[in-house]
Amino acid sequence: MRRVTRAAAHLMLMLVAAAVAFPVLWAVVTSVKPTAVLYDANPFAAAPTLDHYRGALEALPVVRVVLNTAIMSAAVAVGQVAIATLAAYGLTRYRLRGRRVAFAVLIGTALVPQQALVVPHYLMVSRLGLLDSFAGLVLPQLASSALAVFILRQQMAAFPDELIEAATLAGASDRLILFRIVVPNLRPILTAVAIIVFIQTWNEYLWPLLATDGVSRATVQVGLRIFETEQGTAWGPLMAAAVLVAAPLVVAYAFVQRRVTDAFIRSGLG
């Protein structure tokens, strides 16, 4: 690409980045503003303070809720990706009667409004005696894998035939082909899907609120609500807590996205 075009492209991307990051940066700035100047549009209206962070850490067991949420989200992400990988493989590898129906049934789950399912889920989990447990938190969320199934089916359908044919000729079993050829080659996609499922689960509010009881299993989104009280919202501590719970995610993502990047540096396109 020519130099001028490159510079123009970077300029455009930088503008987009600035617009996208602005509300986030502002949350960070707000979290270190003293209460008295909280609403001042000037970010440097007063010397920054860590008071809100102290307040947030006192009110919310940050490590606890971050760990709870991480365990829940990781379990759901791994579970969904595993289920979806198997299903997508089954749907693309075999000319199965009714596979169109099976596909429709799997991605049709995205059409059902979550609000309609929360209460049946509560009744089920409560009958199983799993309220306030990780199992109870995770199980009802495993099936909302429509997006994962759809993405993986699309990508597997576009998978180069030659690789599979070669393996088949070499006598590899279906299972071997899935785990030795398809999965390794789709690793960037699988990673992306896992990240998305992880984040969506991380951001879930209604189900964790109902399924848990107190802080022992409370998740991030439920925990943040303690700053929105009937006496008004404690903006400073809320922003500080939001930064605290989002920070580990941002750092983790910055590392993980390299896997996506690395994949095509290896392929010589970077």
Partner: peptide
């Protein structure tokens, strides 16, 4: 309770 556990005077 909706006050219990909230940050500040209510909790």
């Amino acid at each position: 309770s909706y006050n219990y556990g909230t940050d500040g005077v209510g909790g």
